Computed example of a mutant assay.
Amino acid sequence: MSDDTFKPTQKMAANAKKGLELRAKFHRGGTEVGVHRAEQIAKQAELGQEDVKSMHSYFARHAVDKEGKAHEWGSDEDPSAGYIAWLLWGGEEGKAWADRHASKLAR
Rank of each mutant, 00 (worst) to 15 (best):
Y58Q: 04
A106S: 15
V35W: 02
I41R: 01
A81C: 09
E72W: 07
A38L: 11
H56R: 08
A42D: 05
V64P: 00
M12T: 09
H36N: 13
A106F: 07
H62C: 03
V33D: 15
A85K: 01
A63Y: 06
A16V: 05
D51S: 09
F6N: 06
T5G: 08
G74Y: 07
W89V: 00
H36S: 15
E50A: 14
D65H: 07
A45C: 09
K66E: 15
S103D: 15
S54P: 00
A96Q: 08
W97D: 00
Q40M: 15
G94Y: 01
S2Q: 12
H56Y: 12
A45G: 11
P8C: 12
M55V: 03
W86Q: 02
M12H: 05
L20R: 02
K104F: 10
H101A: 04
A98S: 15
W89K: 01
A60T: 11
R100H: 14
G90D: 05
K95D: 02
L88R: 03
Q40W: 10
T31H: 15
A13R: 04
A96S: 11
F6P: 09
R23M: 03
D65C: 03
L22T: 03
S103M: 14
E92M: 04
R23Q: 10
W97V: 00
E72I: 06
W86M: 05
A70N: 12
M1P: 00
I84S: 01
A81L: 09
R100Y: 13
E92V: 11
F26N: 02
M1Q: 08
K66M: 14
T5D: 08
D76F: 06
A60K: 13
T9D: 12
F26K: 04
G48K: 09
H62P: 04
V64E: 11
G19H: 03
K11Y: 10
A60D: 13
A24Q: 08
N15A: 15
E46L: 10
P79G: 06
L47G: 00
H71A: 14
E67G: 06
H56S: 13
Q44N: 11
A16G: 04
E32H: 13
H27D: 12
S2A: 13
G19L: 06
Y58H: 08
A13P: 15
A98H: 05
G74S: 09
M1D: 08
A38G: 08
A63M: 07
H71F: 12
G29P: 07
L87R: 06
K7R: 14
A42N: 07
K7Q: 14
A98R: 06
H56I: 03
T5L: 05
N15C: 13
G82R: 00
K66P: 03
R100K: 15
F26S: 02
R23S: 05
A81R: 02
A13Y: 07
G90S: 10
P79E: 02
A13D: 07
A16C: 10
A13V: 11
D4Y: 09
R61G: 05
H71R: 12
S2Y: 09
Q49F: 02
Y83T: 02
G74R: 12
A14D: 14
T9H: 11
P8F: 06
A96W: 03
S75A: 06
L105K: 04
A98V: 04
R61Y: 08
A81T: 06
V35K: 04
L22S: 00
R28C: 06
A60V: 10
S75Y: 06
H101Q: 11
G19T: 08
W97Y: 11
A16Q: 03
